[in-house]
Design a protein around this nucleic acid. Sequence first.
RNA 1: GGGGCUGUAGCUCAGCCGGAUAGAGCGACGGUUUCCUAAACCGUAGGUCGUGGGUUCGAGUCCCGCCAGCCCCGCCA
Length: 626
Amino acid sequence: MLSPSRPPDSMLRIAQTLETQLRAAMARAFPEAAEQASAAGSALDPQLAPASKPEFGDFQANGALPLAKPLGQPPRAIATAIVAQLQADPAFAALCLEPQIAGPGFINLTLKPERLAAEVAARLADARLGVPSVAEAREGTSGQALAPVVVDFSSPNIAKEMHVGHLRSTIIGDSLARVLEFRGHPVLRLNHVGDWGTQFGMLITHLKQVAPEALTTADAVDLGDLVAFYRQAKARFDDDEAFQTTSREEVVKLQSGDPVSLKAWGLLCDQSRREFQLIYDRLDIRLSERGESFYNPYLAGVVADLDASGLLVTDDGAQCVFLEGVSGKDGKPLPLIVQKSDGGFNYATTDLAAIRYRFAAGPEGDGARRVIYVTDAGQASHFAGVFQVARRAGWIPADGRLEHVPFGLVQGEDGKKLKTRAGDTVRLRDLLDEAVERCEADLRRRLQEEGRSEDEAFIAHVAATVGLAAVKYADLSQNRITNYQFSFDRMLALTGNTAPYLLYAVVRIAGIARKGGDLGAAGAGGGTGVDPADSLHFSEPQEWALVRELLKFDAVIAEVEEELLPNRLCTYLFELSQVFNRFYDQVPVLKAEGPTRSSRLALCRLTADTLKLGLGLLGIPTLERM
RNA sequence: GGGGCUGUAGCUCAGCCGGAUAGAGCGACGGUUUCCUAAACCGUAGGUCGUGGGUUCGAGUCCCGCCAGCCCCGCCA
């Protein structure tokens, strides 16, 4: 029975319940096999999974098949025995219709319609839409604060403009942070900006010679100039040995706290920071800057720590840790250099210092238990090496998770690295501008074709929202591991797995609300004390399809939290939109009457809420009209 | 030379712990609008899952070999 005080249920909990019931049924059906399994330290696995096709019901249990051989019985007979035990369980019988045995021995489970309706009712009353919060779960048990999760993403370099390469890290990292925050984790969104390396020495050295005012006066040069200066400095560094030496000396001065160098450095950082912030504001991305420089005071300690643990080896004058299981060109172990022969530190040192700091307890640490790095896949071996050393140094607690979340390159439609027509790197700012401009042009063309008239504020708002949503969604909707082919035409398409298609589904529901559908009251039971589930009546297959799709949301969020793959959420939201559009096309809502009408309105509301929440977790705001 | 990632329909991609007849979208072709925004919906065609072995009751998925593409490999980040 659904009691009013019961917390909102979820499909995940139902799956857990079913799994327990299946396990018990299997143990009753085959006691000796179950005993053997438990003697071996395991248990009979029902292999419960979501149904692979709608016609198979809600769940399928494949656990009968692997038992065929050890038991010497046909799998369908085993399935029959399990089902008989299942049906003897009153709790199961209350939850599911009669199980069906299909194919070689699959057990197909279908939840009772009234149970599905009850789930919908629970979600309608739950702002979290069935997704449990780890923070709430913790409150009841102990006062201990949850350990933060660090998400390290975006990380542009000072004195360089953000380019398309930073797009993926920024968007994927933001989305993962949003999902983790929604689940109730305290999240540290850290922007590990490149503000401290050799590049700085060369930039300052170059500026001293060609534009000294930039090092002493704020805003003496703008970021565009800075980027040009950086390019010149890099060119000189690459073929002028004297310049190289001066630059290295400059780095040492900076890193040892020389006030003049520090002042210059501060000015350059401020300049870049303001530019980055414009992009972050536009994309609605919140980040705490904690650049490489932050770890400067800890670098020497990191090396000393490694030395104390006996990991440090001097090789060719450099301080190294040799990696286990990784061999270099001549079969010898590969070193991770943590202090260069000139005494300077490099990015491996900084990354090690960051890891140590993030897992360490405060005040000189973040006390994190999960640290996530969102960087391109090209850095996979670097991070593997750094992670290994951190682990061997004992900086990662037993329950600590350290994860590299790699992503592929952004390519042009020619399959090569994305470039402008002139062959330059595409600036992120320009890319976002173009998406919005294309959107606006398309919107104006449409308005004209359809004879609609909208004011300029509406057009600007819709174009900006849809354009940026398209850029984000296109990126997030692909499995991040693979390279990603950037195409304005595809991402802005109004059909298919695109942001405009999803946003349109939300707009359609908003349209129903405008035309008189009271979504707010729908399915709420009217405050009469009547169980809301009793007021929900579904009959059409399109309604049931929508119900089932809506109820998957919590499982999808759990999966994204675990696998860190935002494309799983995108696929779900796309499928939900498709199922909704079928419903919308084939089932009248406003023209229906009585409980049918209010039940359909309830589905519309839950669909809109799910899409808004889901898109929100991708960093995409929705629209009422478009 | 070593290591990593990728290879699925004409194109862009999904494919979860190994499960049923491999799925979408785009494009192509053919339909649907007195009705809540047709930015939608319905249908048809389109596959040797790079390749050869192996494991298994069962392989796109796991293991080994090979081919192709991309990326990384000592003092840049």
